[in-house]
Structure formats: C-alpha cells, structure tokens
Amino acid sequence: MHKKDSKSRDQLLDYLDDKAEWLRREIIRLSSIAGGAHLGGGLSMADVIVAVYYYAMNLKQGDPTWADRDRFILSKGHGAVAYCPVLADQGFFSPDWLNTFNNLDSPFGMHPDMKKIPGCDMSTGSLGHGLSVAVGMALTARLDKKSWRVFVLMGDGEINEGMVWEAAPAASHFKLGNIVAIIDRNTLSLDGPTEEIMAIEPIAKRWEAFGWRVFDIDGHDMGALVDTLDKLPPSSDPTPTLIVARTVKGKGVDFMENNPIWHYAGLDKAKSAEALTCIGNCRPKRRT
C-alpha cells in the first residue's frame, strides 16, 4: 500500500507503524555493517520519515527522477542510516546495495550523496544548508508552475546554525507555501540537551515570527503525523509550513532513549540483538 488508498485509517496507521518498526530494525542492522551509525537521531526521526515518504510525498515507485515528484532534503544529513533504507524500499535501487554501507566506494556513508544514491535529491551533511536549498527548489517549482512540494527534515540542534535563519525569512518572503520543513525535536545534540547548550525554544513562536505556519506535535504518534500532513495547505499557498516533531532520541530502543552517548555508536552482536528485541517490544500496539 502506498499513500491515501482505500484502507481504513487504522489499517493505514498499522501499515506506517510496521514501516517504522522495519526502518528501526534496518538502522540497527546497517549500523553493524557500517561499524557505527548515528543511532540516536536515526531512531528519533524514523516515524517522521516514514510518514513523509509513505504517506505525504507524491512519488513514483522505482522512478527516482520523475520530474513532478515531491522533493526531500535530509538537512540533518547524519540521519542517512535512517534515510537510505527508505529510498531502497521506494524501489529507487536494490536493497542489496545497503550491505556495502561505509565500505570503500559504497554509495552510502555517514552523510548522503545525491551523485551516488538514486532518489537522494541533495547531498547533505554540513548542518544548516538544507532549508536554503529547499528555498531554491521551491522557487524552481514556482518558475516552472509545478505543484510539487519540498520537504526538508532538520535536526533540532541544527537550527543553531545562522544560515537557517537566513533561509527562514526567505521562504516566507518569497511566499513558498510549497515548503514543508520538519524539525526532529529530540532535545539532545552531541554535547547534551539543546536547552543547556544553546536554547532554541520557544521554537514555534520563533518560526511564527518569521512568517511560518507551525504545527507542534508528537513525532512518534503516527496518527498525529498523518493528521498534520493532511492539514498541509495546497502547494500554491503563500505560507511555508513547519512541523515541530517532538521526539525521543534513540526512540524504540529503551537503553538508548534520551541518552546522548548513543548519538553515534557501534553495536556488537549481543547489543544488536538486545536492540532488536527492544524494537519489537516498543512497537505501538496494533489497531487492527
């Protein structure tokens, strides 16, 4: 199933939760192949990226260059381990490729490279760049009179970057309601809590002051994610949208949750097995 087909809401949410559980398992599996990965931030963004890719975005399975597709920029490029499996699952390349993660000449490393990964719309990794690129992409959609949207997923610590605050007013100034930015608000950056390191709250008020429409939601509640994505304005709207997705760093693996030491880590076999068990146990209850 893909997107808004005939299934009931409960079936849809179960389907998306299944995808999120699968993605979390992939993150653990790939981190073993890769010898380490950004586990905390990968697990925190899993529900968001699943909702965006499997529900909101207008895509063609297996066709990464379809001109009218919605675009996605992983501005928090270190989340590649939670992004590349989704692109494979969209049929943009063989999932077998993922087994090369981090190896010499692999298309996949810590940060995604659009020249090597089919379906990746922009290379990222240096924080703060994604929203500016989204503004440029959204302008091209306007110039070409196209209705596709640009989704951009940022980390919460990332919005410390000054460039974000150059792009935020540009998006509203140029009336780019075809931009949907999402902040993975897991409250922890590498050195600890964002509010202790460099406070970013109140996020919603700050972005509203820059001319954005803001939804502030639980980023692990698939129902809330779907409802919010349903409320997106038509892409012709003049106001860009920000979704503040309140998440938990390391979500789904209880010993990693809210612990910044799992920002980046490798797992031995025993820890991997333990993590996978946790993911099964932590999965939201089925509705159907």
Partner: peptide
C-alpha cells in the same frame, strides 16, 4: 523580475538557494 531573486544580506543562504535552482536545471 520573475527570474531575479534578491535574498537580502544573507550570502550563505544565497548560495544554498542557487544550488536549489540549479538542481532543477536553471542556470543561476
């Protein structure tokens, strides 16, 4: 005027925006 964008005093953003425009085949 439709093909000209003044981003204000924000050079970093300007080059990011240019990248976005170039990705879709425009020549900024």
């Amino acid at each position: 005027p439709d093909r000209f964008f003044n981003v204000g005093i924000a050079e970093q953003n300007m080059f990011g925006v240019a990248a976005g425009l170039a990705l879709a085949g425009f020549v900024p």
